[in-house]
Simulated assay, not measured.
Amino acid sequence: MSFIFKSIDHVQLAAPKGSETIARKFFGEILGFQEIEKPEKLRKKGGVWFQFNTYQIHIGIEEPFTPAKKAHPAFEVENLDALKMHLNQNEVNFMVDTDLPGANRIYVHDPFGNRIEILEWI
């Protein structure tokens, strides 16, 4: 082939109209992602963008809104136990899953019901 996939540029999750403040609290304050500025031409569409390391998460506005219950991004973390304690302190529910050999992992739902996998390879 004459083309090569290089990386994932971003993952987009959907949220209902007017939910930017809630997204900032969950993704920015609780998960610790850094908010980044959207390009001017895209601001009128609503939503908010975040980044950690070189990865971006775009929270886009969708009407009518339906959360992603099966499709999901998966984030690799270091020290999943500390994250679980942090989530508990912030009253964010998660489900422990032991089905993936070689990984400790949990699932959380963002405030809009989108499923997010978080895992630590052991």
Rank of each mutant, 00 (worst) to 15 (best):
R115C: 12
R105T: 00
L100Q: 14
E91A: 09
L42S: 14
L119R: 03
Y55Q: 03
Q89V: 03
V77C: 05
H10M: 11
F75T: 10
D110N: 02
I4Y: 15
L13R: 09
W49Q: 08
H58D: 05
A103E: 06
K44R: 00
F65A: 03
P39N: 12
F26I: 08
I36V: 08
S19K: 01
V48L: 12
F26Q: 05
F75E: 04
I30Q: 07
K25T: 07
F27K: 03
E76M: 14
K70T: 14
L83C: 13
F26L: 00
N93H: 12
N90W: 01
F112V: 12
Q56A: 02
I122R: 14
E62Y: 10
F5A: 13
Q34R: 03
P39M: 15
I8S: 08
G102R: 06
K38I: 07
I118V: 12
S19P: 08
E20G: 11
K38H: 07
L13K: 10
A103C: 10
S7G: 11
I59G: 03
M1G: 13
M85F: 11
I30Y: 09
E37H: 00
N90Q: 05
I8V: 12
V48R: 02
N114L: 01
S7F: 11
I118S: 06
N88H: 11
V96P: 03
P73M: 01
N90C: 01
N93A: 15
E63M: 04
I118A: 09
K45F: 15
N93T: 14
E37P: 08
F5H: 04
N104M: 11
K41L: 11
A82Q: 15
T54E: 06
G28S: 01
I118E: 04
A15T: 14
A74P: 09
M85D: 12
K84I: 12
G47R: 06
F33M: 07
M85H: 10
Q89N: 10
G102E: 10
L31N: 01
G28C: 05
M95V: 15
K17H: 15
H72R: 10
Y107M: 04
E78D: 15
R24P: 11
D97E: 06
K69I: 12
I4S: 14
I61D: 02
Q12T: 15
P101K: 04
N104A: 11
L80P: 02
A23K: 02
K70H: 12
I22T: 14
A71R: 15
I118R: 00
K69R: 04
A71C: 08
F112R: 07
K84V: 09
G102I: 02
D99T: 10
M85I: 09
G47W: 00
I30S: 07
F75P: 11
E120K: 03
E91S: 13
V77P: 06
A23T: 12
P101T: 01
E29C: 05
L87M: 00
L42N: 13
P101N: 10
L42Y: 14
W49R: 00
Q34L: 06
E76S: 13
